[in-house]
């Protein structure tokens, strides 16, 4: 499904990703862990095509298509979804209007008819309930005045509505209490299927208690330095990331 080879990327002349490779098959859940500044958020931005993130080397294929050739919105329509760590507030644009535009853009890309207002409202209400958000959130401005937890749940609600094939969750657990974490995790788990893959980016192992990964990768200094199964996350939990420095120094 997603094939990343030797990805190098820079932001404002600073190279952040330095040869990252990753292969994800349909239905798999990959966790990416790593210390602050390792490039975890950058990976999501580069894959989704944010302005200012420049790919200097490497290839990325999504479902056999060259991802890096595409515009941000084309990548989204190709099935890539990024749940933001800090979703932006957009006053004046209602959540409802925003998501309806978005859902119908996806449907159009998939060759489906756009949803009518009534059909969309029905779906939106269901999704809203699923992530425990009150219905009036649909009428409010996008993320406007939402708490940190509400913003994260709003991201998951969008994921549910947009039905992507590859979901990148960027620290969807940060700043959440245990109840909110459970809601987010339930939302994600409800979307797991043999066709849909996930990249779960997190600093802590905690989220992985709720969303069981098939693989865990450690990202440090722009590269994946270690891969393993779920037990690797537990190891990190115990040891922290300090050993990375030693390992690298020893290697250098």
């Amino acid at each position: 499904m997603l094939k990343i080879q030797n990805l190098h990327a820079k932001v404002e002349d600073k190279t952040i990703l330095k040869g990252l490779s990753l292969d994800i098959k349909p239905g798999e859940v990959h966790a990416i862990m790593g210390p602050n500044g390792a490039g975890k958020s950058t990976l999501g931005y580069v894959l989704s095509g944010r302005d200012g993130y420049e790919v200097t080397d490497g290839q990325v294929e999504l479902n056999g298509q060259d991802l890096l050739e595409q515009e941000t919105e084309e990548r989204a329509r190709a099935g890539l979804f990024l749940a933001f760590q800090y979703p932006v507030e957009i006053p004046g644009v209602s959540n409802m209007e925003f998501m309806k535009e978005s859902v119908n853009a996806m449907r159009e890309a998939r060759g489906q008819e756009p949803l009518s207002a009534a059909e969309f409202l029905k779906k939106a209400k269901e999704a809203c309930k699923q992530v425990h958000l009150p219905l009036d959130f649909l009428k409010r401005g996008v993320n406007e005045g939402f708490s940190g937890g509400e913003k994260k749940r709003n991201e998951i609600m969008q994921m549910i509505l947009l039905e992507p094939t590859l979901c990148i969750l960027d620290e969807s657990d940060s700043g959440l209490d245990i109840d909110a974490l459970q809601v987010v995790a339930d939302g994600v788990n409800s979307q797991r299927s043999p066709e849909r893959s996930f990249i779960v980016v997190t600093h802590y192992q905690r989220l992985l208690d709720y969303i069981k990964p098939d693989f865990v990768h450690i990202l440090a200094d722009g590269k994946i330095v270690k891969s393993g199964d779920a037990s690797l996350a537990l190891e990190v939990e115990k040891e922290g990331y300090a050993w990375l420095g030693e390992a690298q120094e020893a290697g250098a």
Binding site: R50, D51, M106
Partner: peptide, 13 residues
């Protein structure tokens, strides 16, 4: 830029 990127990342032209 952030707001524009957010909308684009949801597939809106």
């Amino acid at each position: 830029e952030k707001a524009l990127y957010y909308l684009l990342s949801r597939g809106i032209s």
